[in-house]
Nucleic acid binder design. Structure first.
Lengths: 209, 209, 209, 209
DNA sequence: TATGAATGAGGTTTCATTCAT
DNA sequence: TATGAATGAAACCTCATTCAT
């Protein structure tokens, strides 16, 4: 029993080790430029080993995105579960998004890039399923906050799913857009400030006047 | 002169022909999967010819994106120039996005994909410059509307550039996000409706209460 | 001694277990496509264990072929030892081939595939020696029948080794050829009937007129 | 027109050049051990070029086999068309087989190895079709001779297709079998003599007594 | 003896790009 | 200017084999 447990644990560690190496390499090189050999070297493993844990490059990359999505989801859920006002929740969600962005902006950007049919089409059913589930969980948590706001007659009476879409889309849009702007203009660190402005607008926009 | 002009004209036509072919191929296959040979075949030209007009695949793709961006910019500017209220302008901007999305959803998504450091890093200075200029023009036009709203004390008194970023990011984020949602959930045609909701929130959020 | 014997016995059982698993996998997949991992899984053993019993994949395959060949040889010898006429012996040899083919057609085909320099070149001396011995035993038994026929002035007076080669080659050739014909033309079950015709021709051809 | 023709001709030459290089490499190394890189080097071309003419390694190999099968077929047909007796035709077929074997025994052996479901299953429909057609042409020519012999009441009255199968199978069986025997026993050049014996037996066996 | 995770060499294949015509 | 055959680098991935446990 002890042995089986340890093996299981070792396996998970190895997986995590690969994911971590992949995060570093994908972060600096992007999906296309990164090579499996590089990731293997970074993980201090042989290329073949990577394939024992991940079916192919695409799936390794997606697993990485799922990890950050899961992290995001966990944090969002924590906020939603708190015993605070709807408006405070919205404010804390802002911080969650900012924190996740600051943790690893590149992977977050990849996550948003992943959100396009092109990439999604090539994933294995299991991974796609997991992505769907996590994604809808995160989204569900946001819908909950919105619904609460509508019920308490604080928020405007639009379809809550659509409103949650707007919140999420604004978040991902700001990250993508400002990231590219940052590159084009060689300016730094105004993703955070723009995210703050975005949430001010959104929070204001959701509120019944 | 007549000859030189005609040559110039022919050159532009050929360029347009390639860009149009690229639009079709990139649209259906995405950047990575599309091949130069396919684009050449679609344009009824040989692969070699493509390189007489575009330095490489990356730049062909970017040139295409710039075209879309220029179209977007032109439309945005038209709206901004109109003699209508700020709120009406905002409403018409929504339609600009909807129209472009409906013309070719994939290409708009490709445009957003372009907006990532990974791609931008490999462009030639001229193309990058053009991209910067066009991009800032579109953004400038939106800033103008925002400023007008702030001046007229209709909009909240935040930094206008940041507010313009939020508007742009929200609109583009909705397209990207809802497109992926559509794929994951097999639902169709609610980009338009979500864009409308987004506009409602944004318009409400910008307004001084 | 009892312990040593049991160990020896266990070893042989394990070996047989692997050979049987290999038979199944090679049968359905062919040499190249079959993997050691599949064979290990089929034998309910780990890949490493296979290498305790067989030097490498090639030798496992050859050992399997030798088993088949040994079986064939045993059956051929039984027929030869019988107290029947030469022509009846030839007729019964036909049935030996038919039976082996019907037991597992693929494995017989694999046996013939083995008979090519490419494969033989990579075997260990011991295995090669065993293959030679078994092969020449089977052949020797057939030569015996031929010789008997020649001695009794029933068969034509050609070199008996060459005649035995013709008999063996014709029977194995029919199996291989008709098997491919079956695939190309989607017809079934005429190996048996062709083998019968082959026998008729051979028996007739061997006979002095 | 002259240009198109020359291009066509060049293309065929290039194809032939690759086939010839492949023949050399496959002949000495066998299918598995041979690499595309080696073949490319032998053809004094780059690896990529091979893929402009052949879909993959498998198909290059099969094309080679088809070439020799086509050659064999042509020679068989020539004999069949001659204005000589059936028995002389049979005798000349023997020489055709011997000549082809002596031209390139390795490729001929590969051709017979190809005749197994395993390999056939992976070919493209076109190549498979060509293989089928050529194969049935060669077979058809032999059937013709057999039929003629039966009609003239020289040959035994068995099903001509089955008899042709026996002839063909004996031929391929002798080549395969004796080739392996040659390796096992380190003897050389008795394929030819065994083929002669085989034809003596077959010719005798076909004849009505 | 048995395991099975890890190895890593090496093969096939693709495709952006070039260049002689 | 246009061609398109040829290039060749480089990537992914497989799988027979090993070895520490």
């Amino acid at each position: 029993m002890g042995i089986a447990e340890r093996k299981q644990r070792e396996k998970e560690l190895r997986r995590a080790q690969i994911i971590e190496a992949a995060r570093k390499v994908f972060s600096t090189k992007g999906f296309n430029t990164a090579t499996m050999e590089e990731i293997a070297a970074q993980a201090e493993l042989s290329p073949g080993t990577l394939y024992l844990y991940f079916k192919n490059k695409e799936e390794l990359h997606t697993s990485l995105s799922i990890e950050i999505l899961e992290h995001l989801t966990r944090e969002v859920k924590k906020v939603v579960a708190k015993d605070i006002s709807v408006e405070e929740k919205l404010d804390q969600l802002k911080h969650v998004f900012i924190d996740v962005y600051e943790y690893d902006s590149m992977i977050l950007i990849n996550l948003f890039h992943l959100q396009s049919g092109e990439t999604l089409r090539n994933l294995s059913p299991e991974v796609l399923k997991q992505l769907k589930r996590t994604s809808s969980e995160a989204h569900g948590a946001i819908i909950e906050v919105i619904k609460e706001g509508i019920d308490k007659e604080i928020f405007i009476d639009e379809h809550p799913v659509a409103l949650a879409d707007v919140v999420w889309a604004t978040f991902s849009g700001v990250v993508l857009w400002v990231d590219s702007k940052r590159f084009l203009n060689n300016k730094k660190d105004f993703v955070t400030s723009t995210l703050k402005t975005a949430f001010t607008v959104i929070a204001n926009g959701l509120r019944r006047q």
